[in-house]
């Protein structure tokens, strides 16, 4: 008798468990739809053949790669209401500029972050604590205001117009040592005894950094590379400031935002489709890269947040 009661209890518990799981599945499916819907829409619209800004139906009636082709051939698109020589409003140009900037920034920034993190994690010197506190406080200034000052400074040394690639790189890289936090947290978890053993064997700090710490830090190096690349790839504020309104010096973020301004959309009846095509082209490399290196990104996010 007692046995069957227990069994019944077990069975009802299982039923509860099953219904909770069912509810969770429903929620998860709903979430997935919400999260994926915009991107699926983006992809479909980029392949839409019919003209018009928006359609009342989800799936295009005519499929085409024309939007992509026109995007790359730079046909019939110029800044709305302002006659500008066609060469300026050039998606490929923006793309190339952004890519170049992102790659250079990634290299320099990764080096700076690693180096700063090592010094702050492994070395003990008088200015260490004050330095960390100072960086904490400096990080609270609204970045935008310092950007205007930097703009004037760059203008002074002639790094705004044709040299704006260099200017942008300098600005993005300039204060990157303030992003040492997550990387230092990772270095802190590498046992100090490794350093000490190496020191006994006669290695100096430099050798320890290159021969011991760096080889052990693959996940965090990849994380730093990934985030350093994604930063300038999607940066809007300073890129638009430094271009000062001339499309020649834009990056993809500024260009794409301009493409969907109301007046641009109204003027060209394939403006929105072309924006979607551009968005796909901009997102694709970074999205693929991200999914390949996802593991490292997750490690970085979780590791960084756990350190207090």
């Amino acid at each position: 008798m007692a046995n069957s009661v227990k069994q019944k209890k077990m069975r009802s518990k299982k039923a509860v468990e099953r219904s909770t799981n069912a509810v969770i599945y429903v929620i998860l499916v709903a979430i997935s739809v919400i999260w994926l819907f915009p991107y699926v829409y983006l992809l479909l619209q980029s392949l839409r053949g019919e003209p018009g800004i928006m359609t009342r139906y989800f799936f295009p009636k005519k499929w085409t790669f024309g939007n992509y082709i026109r995007l790359f051939k730079n046909q019939g698109l110029s800044k709305a209401n302002k006659p500008i020589s066609t060469g300026d409003y050039n998606f490929l140009n923006w793309y190339g500029r952004t890519f170049l900037i992102a790659v250079v920034v990634t290299v320099i920034q990764t080096v700076i972050v690693l180096v700063t993190s090592y010094a702050l994690s492994r070395m003990r010197f008088k200015m260490r604590k004050p330095l960390m506190n100072a960086m904490l406080i400096l990080g609270m200034f609204p970045g935008f205001m310092s950007m205007t000052a930097m703009y004037f400074l760059l203008q002074l040394i002639g790094l705004t117009q044709d040299m704006s690639i260099v200017g942008l790189i300098l600005v993005y890289v300039g204060s990157s040592c303030m992003g040492y936090y997550i990387c230092k947290g990772f270095f802190d978890t590498i046992p100090k005894s490794l350093d000490e053993a190496a020191r006994i064997d006669g290695a100096n700090r430099q050798t320890i950094f290159f021969k011991i710490i760096l080889p052990l830090s693959k996940p965090i190096i990849i994380y730093t590379i990934l985030t350093s690349f994604m930063g300038p790839w999607g940066e809007y504020m300073f890129a638009s400031l430094i271009a000062n309104g001339s499309p020649k010096y834009w990056n993809v973020a500024v260009g794409l935002r301009d493409m969907i301004q109301r007046e641009s959309l109204a003027k060209y009846n394939d403006g929105f489709q072309r924006f979607c095509a551009a968005a796909v082209v901009v997102s694709l490399p970074i999205t693929i890269l991200f999914f390949i290196l996802q593991r490292y990104y997750v490690e970085g996010v979780t590791g960084g947040s756990v350190k207090g």
Binding site: I31, L36, V282
Partner: peptide
């Protein structure tokens, strides 16, 4: 869910 991280944020927001 990670889609919104993997796609550049400005693209998601403009969209």
């Amino acid at each position: 869910l990670i889609m919104t991280i993997a796609v550049p944020q400005f693209v998601s927001l403009l969209l």
